[in-house]
Amino acid sequence: MSNQIITEISVDLDNRDKNTALFRIFLAVPVLIFLSSFAAFADDAMGWIGGFLVLPVVLSLLFRNVYPSYVLAFNKAFLELDNRVTAYLLVLTDDYPSIEANQKVRLTYPEIDGGRKLSPWMPLVKWFLAIPLFLLGLIYAIYLLALTLIAWFTVVTKGYYPADKAEEVVKVIAYWNRLYGYAVLLITDEYPSFSLS
């Protein structure tokens, strides 16, 4: 089993709803408000994390060498919700993002319990080590936006999502999920790959 988050997104390629794709950003406002409510009470220093529980994980890894299961469950559910909203906004699916888990977007986490321990000191340096990954991720994000613009135009005019664009967009989302798993959620000590594959 991989020591990284595995991302599976079921993309709707054919028979797309042109009308909802055209006004997707406006239709997503309610679920975006719901998603942003998790970060609304965070202070400025931690606000960029966006709703994930990080400090309890860092403290429990440093002092107890344990990843709290309830924090893991919350962070996993929050990242899956974020991915469902992202898939909807990026026109990968016409299904309005549910606030409950569904089969369109699934994330598989590495096994944390069962003998594999996380290094207790790594949370102190992971953010620093992840700087090159974040910088490359920004380039990948620009690539994702360009692909999404082309795909959005195709969906609105022709009613289908190009398969090659969908594959690349999902790879970029998976890259960011692996990066979050390493640097923000701290669920693995394995350094993520720089590639999209």
Rank of each mutant, 00 (worst) to 15 (best):
R64D: 06
W48A: 10
I131H: 09
I33Q: 00
L59W: 12
A101C: 00
D43S: 08
I112M: 02
A39K: 13
Y96W: 11
L35V: 10
L138I: 14
L55Y: 13
D95P: 10
G50W: 11
A40F: 15
W121T: 14
Y96T: 13
K117C: 03
W48Y: 13
L81G: 03
G47P: 06
R84I: 04
D95C: 14
I112T: 04
D44V: 11
V58K: 03
F38S: 00
Y67K: 00
V31L: 03
V71D: 03
S36T: 07
L90D: 09
I131Y: 09
L138N: 14
I33V: 02
W121V: 15
P97H: 04
R106H: 06
L133E: 03
S36H: 13
F63D: 04
K76V: 02
S119M: 12
R64A: 15
D94C: 00
V66W: 05
G115I: 12
L118S: 03
V105Q: 07
G47W: 14
S119L: 11
L133M: 04
S36I: 07
V125D: 10
L90I: 10
L129R: 10
I142H: 06
W121C: 04
Y67Q: 02
L72P: 00
P97E: 10
L118A: 02
L138T: 14
K76A: 04
L53F: 11
N65G: 01
E100W: 08
I142R: 02
N75C: 01
L81R: 06
I131P: 07
V85K: 03
E80Y: 04
I49C: 00
D95W: 10
T86E: 14
F34S: 05
I142E: 12
L92N: 08
A42I: 09
N65S: 08
S69N: 12
S119H: 13
L89K: 08
D94W: 13
V29L: 11
A39Y: 08
A42K: 14
I99D: 07
P110C: 00
L72M: 12
V54D: 05
V85N: 01
N75D: 04
L61I: 02
F63R: 01
D113V: 05
S119P: 02
G115Y: 09
I131N: 08
G47H: 15
Y88F: 09
D44C: 01
P132L: 12
G114H: 04
T93D: 14
L79I: 05
T93I: 14
L138F: 12
I49D: 12
L136G: 04
R64K: 13
I139D: 06
I99W: 11
I49R: 09
I139S: 12
F74L: 01
P120K: 14
L92V: 10
G51P: 03
V125H: 10
S60N: 07
F78V: 05
R116Q: 09
G114Q: 11
I99M: 10
L136K: 14
E80K: 04
S119N: 15
L129A: 08
R64I: 12
P110G: 01
S37W: 11
A130N: 07
L61Q: 06
L129S: 03
F63A: 01
L55S: 10
R106G: 00
F134K: 12
Q103I: 02
R24T: 06
N102T: 15
L59S: 04
P30D: 09
M122E: 11
L59G: 01
F74T: 06
N102A: 03
R106M: 08
D113R: 05
